[in-house]
Design a binder for these strands. Structure first.
Lengths: 221, 221
DNA sequence: GATACCAATTTGGGATACCAATTTGGTATC
DNA sequence: GATACCAAATTGGTATCCCAAATTGGTATC
């Protein structure tokens, strides 16, 4: 694999994994030495990550994007639009058997599953569901939105019950899709997204002292 | 302005203005000499234009994205999702007086207005309408979708009547927004987008021989 | 002690040199 | 004439160098 893709992938993982905190400043030369690459692939990676919203310009330099509560709320509205549209397309498909694969994905999580796995699968549920629609633009929109949400969702203080509730909502959505009931599926998906947003924003808001203490920049709504 | 932004802007204009045809191959060194810049800003521009969908990788090199009829149809579905969502947000606003500015924009076009201006304003109508929603993600989605559609819309064979019909639909949408009738506005916007797509795809399909003759790559649906 | 100011360092933007892989054009062979 | 093959040119990927601007740290002045 090329250096360019390497740096991009590794840097993205460090940002999404919060090894580099939200709000932290980045210098091209630090990245260069950190990954043993020269500045050309580093710059390519930075440009890509900027379009993903993971980093942003800070005057002349670069900053890891802060957690922005206002942005999280806007993303929820955006998600509702694109995910519901994708879901309706999927419900209109002749062959909706692919939902079984997604259901199996959900069911692969149990009490012994590490938290990272729940986190990843919780996002992949939405991404893969959007992929089923067959619309590349809706799919990419959902995938990009989930990428932007990833860090905030990871920071979210989640109790066991909240995860169980989310999974139950996921299952209910799939059931409606399998039945071909687009309106019901859309209703449940909308409610799920709005509920997720509310819990997410509330959690981050309540814990913003803790986050600041860890050096994470959190921008209020 | 920096070279990087300069190259990006000029190259984008050449692609959107069809000075470089869809499907044409690009080499970094040609761009370099064409704009008198070195490869560093050229590469930055290429990476940005790739994310906009205006160019795409072609093995090791770069190609101006072909006109893709299947993509145009998918974009219409995407647009319907995000534009309608944005429109509903706008209809829910207390102060919807900003639609007057958009209406004035439409009204600035008359028989003496050059075709480029009609083209640009026809896109800006949708972009500015989405901006009113206040949701940055919906706005960017619409703006990016219109950018991707730009070349195809320019190639579209449009008669006077089609333009008049489009403008009438624009006005009707604004009227519904001003009245705060979200359902009516959404219905009209959906119909407008679907109708535009049908006319666009049909036009390009009918003229695909002419387009090929001009050296433009057109990928069938 | 606060502040204005200057030198040294750092940083991103740009240019260029080098390399490996691919493409290209021609040539020799059958 | 077709084809296999090789050398030269081209091209994108990478590393490195230079530069202007911005930041920084210390110092002299009040």
């Amino acid at each position: 694999m090329s250096q360019m893709q390497n740096v991009e992938r590794q840097l993205r993982e460090m940002i999404l994994g919060l090894e580099i905190g939200p709000g932290e400043r980045l210098t091209e030369r630090w990245i260069e030495s950190r990954f043993g690459a020269s500045r050309t692939p580093v710059r390519a990676a930075l440009l890509r990550l900027e379009t993903e919203g993971l980093i942003c310009r800070d005057g002349r330099g670069w900053t890891v994007s802060p957690i922005n509560l206002a942005e999280l709320e806007q993303i929820a509205v955006y998600r509702e639009a694109v995910e519901v549209a994708a879901l309706r397309l999927t419900c209109a498909l002749e062959d909706r058997s692919a939902v079984d694969v997604i259901e199996a994905m959900l069911d692969s999580c149990d009490a012994a599953t590490p938290r990272e796995e729940w986190h990843r699968i919780g996002m992949d549920f939405h991404i893969e569901l959007a992929r089923l629609s067959g619309n590349e633009f809706l799919f990419r929109a959902v995938r990009d939105a989930m990428t932007r949400l990833s860090r905030a969702r990871w920071l979210e203080i989640r109790d066991e019950a909240a995860l169980g509730r989310a999974w139950a909502e996921h299952h209910a959505i799939l059931a409606a899709v399998r039945a071909g009931d687009a309106d019901e599926a859309a209703r449940r998906l909308s409610a799920h997204i709005v509920g997720s947003r509310d819990r997410l924003v509330a959690s981050l808001h309540n814990d913003r002292r803790g986050l600041r203490a860890r050096g994470f920049a959190v921008v209020a709504a």
